[in-house]
């Protein structure tokens, strides 16, 4: 995924089955964002792969004061990249199981 400056990673092992998964997001390269997030911590949250939209979580993070509105797109994209990767891996693992 192209470097957005915001890092999103799994905060727990992905068993490939449960729909809601814990993720951890933090600012790895503050220069790439408009706001000042120099020593902000990592934010852990759960995300439902089946029903939720990354951009909604990004907006909730802005509402909660973690990010400025102006950075909501970058945060949303970073979450979307990680979620797509998780879904892609799950499909690939699933296709691998039925005797391919």
């Amino acid at each position: 995924a192209e470097e957005t400056g915001v890092r999103v990673e799994l905060a727990e092992e992905d068993d490939g089955k449960k729909s809601s998964i814990a993720l951890r997001l933090w600012v790895e390269d503050p220069k790439k964002l408009k706001g000042n997030y120099k020593d902000s911590g990592a934010i852990e949250f759960t995300f439902d792969l089946d029903t939720e939209v990354p951009e909604t979580v990004a907006q909730e993070m802005v509402d909660s004061g973690f990010f400025l509105e102006i950075d909501v797109k970058i945060v949303g994209k970073s979450i979307r990249d990680r979620v797509s990767l998780i879904k892609w891996r799950r499909q690939r693992n699933a296709s691998g199981h039925n005797g391919k």
């Binding site: 890092r7 909730e60 973690f66």
Partner: peptide, 27 residues
């Protein structure tokens, strides 16, 4: 340090913890 928590009005819980140490050294 105890992790700070923020619960959004929509109900999602955000838990703030220090950035994973291993990542900081990579910069």
């Amino acid at each position: 340090s105890s992790a700070a928590q923020v619960v959004h009005s929509a109900g999602r819980r955000f838990i703030v913890s220090p950035v994973p140490e291993s990542r900081l050294r990579e910069q």
